[in-house]
Design a protein around this nucleic acid. Sequence first.
DNA 1: GACAATACCAAGCAAGCGCTTGGTTTGTAA
DNA 2: TTACAAACCAAGCGCTTGCTTGGTATTGTC
Lengths: 203, 203
Amino acid sequence: MNQSQILQSLIAENLVSDPSGARGRLLTEAARLFREKGYERTTVRDLAAAVGIQSGSLFHHFRTKEEILKAVMVETIRLNTALMQAALEAADTNRKKLRGLVRAELESINGQTGEAMAVLVFEWRSLSAASQVEVLELRDIYEKLWLDVLESLKHEGALEADPFVVRRMLTGALSWTVTWYKPERGGLTLDGLTDQVMAMMAL
Amino acid sequence: MNQSQILQSLIAENLVSDPSGARGRLLTEAARLFREKGYERTTVRDLAAAVGIQSGSLFHHFRTKEEILKAVMVETIRLNTALMQAALEAADTNRKKLRGLVRAELESINGQTGEAMAVLVFEWRSLSAASQVEVLELRDIYEKLWLDVLESLKHEGALEADPFVVRRMLTGALSWTVTWYKPERGGLTLDGLTDQVMAMMAL
DNA sequence: GACAATACCAAGCAAGCGCTTGGTTTGTAA
DNA sequence: TTACAAACCAAGCGCTTGCTTGGTATTGTC
């Protein structure tokens, strides 16, 4: 299954909104604006204007502004969990599995879903405590995929450091690429960047 | 020179504010609040209440709210540049110099100046474009300290990946520790964490 | 003790915010 | 055609925001 096939099946299961539908379009624009200006600086009037409706009409689709932020995050995690699972299935050795995860996460961060991924990282504090708990549960599933592979590598002797620590370092390092990585002509490709990450870890 | 001696000499040169003075206390509280709730969610009334004055009185010390954010960032970079320089002087080999930088940055992020460091990372977008340019100039000096060491390590053959990329990965990985690292009794110490970082890079 | 300069307060303004309201248009299906 | 719900608009309410204003303590200096 490739990336768009995964997206299609998630839409069919009603786990993520169709980007061509009204709700999906709003979430896409919301992710873009939240990333560009931050959640607090983005007004409901900005959001409404981005999809061409009046600000009040937003509240027909979502009860509060925060609900929009939560929806962006929840759908992003759902999509990425599926993407990581696919990356794992495509690899046979643990080393290749880790490379697959790194490559897939870099693609999520710097590709089409990058805005939503950045929101997940940088707008976390804007979520209410209640919503944070809800989203964290989904995140645990996602993180377990990484930890399983890293622990296997440790048992193989290919990894010296602690898997928990390594995953957290990787989370920071990979998320941060969104602030500097620009795949321009002749520069570093996503595969090249993945190579650099693996080289840095001497893997 | 130890950490507090460095701070003292910067205060003497008027490069950072004395934390016991009025301006310094405000900046400390501002860093705490900006980190805790974010810049946008922190009101001038919150800031004023934290130092025990009226909200209007803030504008006797700073012309705008944004100027407070900028001051937090500028002083943080100044202090940290001095700390990194001290770490470099205390080491003889390049490997030890890198370890010194990692250790010092982890201490900045997770120690007393941690709040201000987190603000520097997470509230960047809240700075106006003009202020961003100003702060970036200071940041370049800071980054050069890292790049020099990493480039030397590459020439020695101890490092395979590109120094620019490695530094950026480290920036992300180390900043991110602020979201999860808690030096609790019996857990990972700052030195232990530094070891993990070096081990991850097989250095 | 006179006199600035500095630090602060009390009050409030103008603008922008999230969200609500009452009513109209659009899509769908019998 | 009728019926009805979903989607939307126009207007604006109530509140909070950053910041200003005019005046009053407090501090340092000679």
